[in-house]
């Protein structure tokens, strides 16, 4: 089912991509292909491949005649639990990118590290907190001080001048 959904997504992507490529403006100085020529060709190929993928998925389903039966709620819950750490990591990284400019490099990286440590199963306590805070400070010193990279100062501009 996941394969079918993804193949469908690719088909829709191919169509949108092709449509967008037809709207690329042309130029008087253009070559015979033009700026839109290659993307148009690519769009057609992507649509074609997506159709073949959908066909392959259907043929596969036909051959298996639904051997796995209906997935129970328990199976769905187990699958969700399996992907939960990945999902949490993704959310952590999204939050990190959102607050990076506001909180500043040191605080954002500290929180990101701590969140990763805790959600990956490390026992909460002083050690992970210290590792996160000192680790982020180490990165700030290496990149900000030694390599001279301008890192976001955020709400603590005076801490790493």
């Amino acid at each position: 089912m996941t394969n079918l959904i993804f193949a469908g997504v690719l088909l829709v992507f191919g169509m949108i991509y092709f449509r967008a490529s037809t709207q690329i403006p042309s130029n008087m100085l253009e070559d015979p292909v033009g700026a839109s020529g290659f993307p148009k060709l690519l769009g057609v190929v992507i649509i074609g491949l997506a159709v073949v993928l959908i066909g392959q998925v259907f043929m596969g389903v036909k051959r298996q005649i639904f051997p796995r039966g209906n997935r129970s709620d328990v199976a769905i819950t187990t699958a969700f639990r399996r992907f939960q750490p990945t999902l949490l990591l993704f959310v952590t990284l999204v939050v990190f990118l959102t607050v990076l400019d506001t909180l500043g490099y040191w605080l954002s990286v500290s929180f990101m590290l701590l969140a990763i440590f805790i959600q990956s199963g490390l026992r909460t306590g002083w050690v992970p907190v210290l590792v996160a805070v000192l680790g982020a400070a180490g990165f700030q010193l290496i990149f900000g001080k030694l390599l001279g990279v301008q890192l976001p100062a955020g709400i603590l501009p005076g801490l790493f001048p």
């Binding site: 990286v109 990101m112 990763i116 440590f117 990956s120 996160a132 990165f139 990149f143």
Partner: peptide
């Protein structure tokens, strides 16, 4: 492993930010 994962991600994002 969480320590290594955290520091690898910090290195990735810091490296790209530079």
């Amino acid at each position: 492993k969480p320590y290594l994962m955290g520091f690898i991600l910090a290195l990735v994002f810091t490296g790209i930010y530079t």
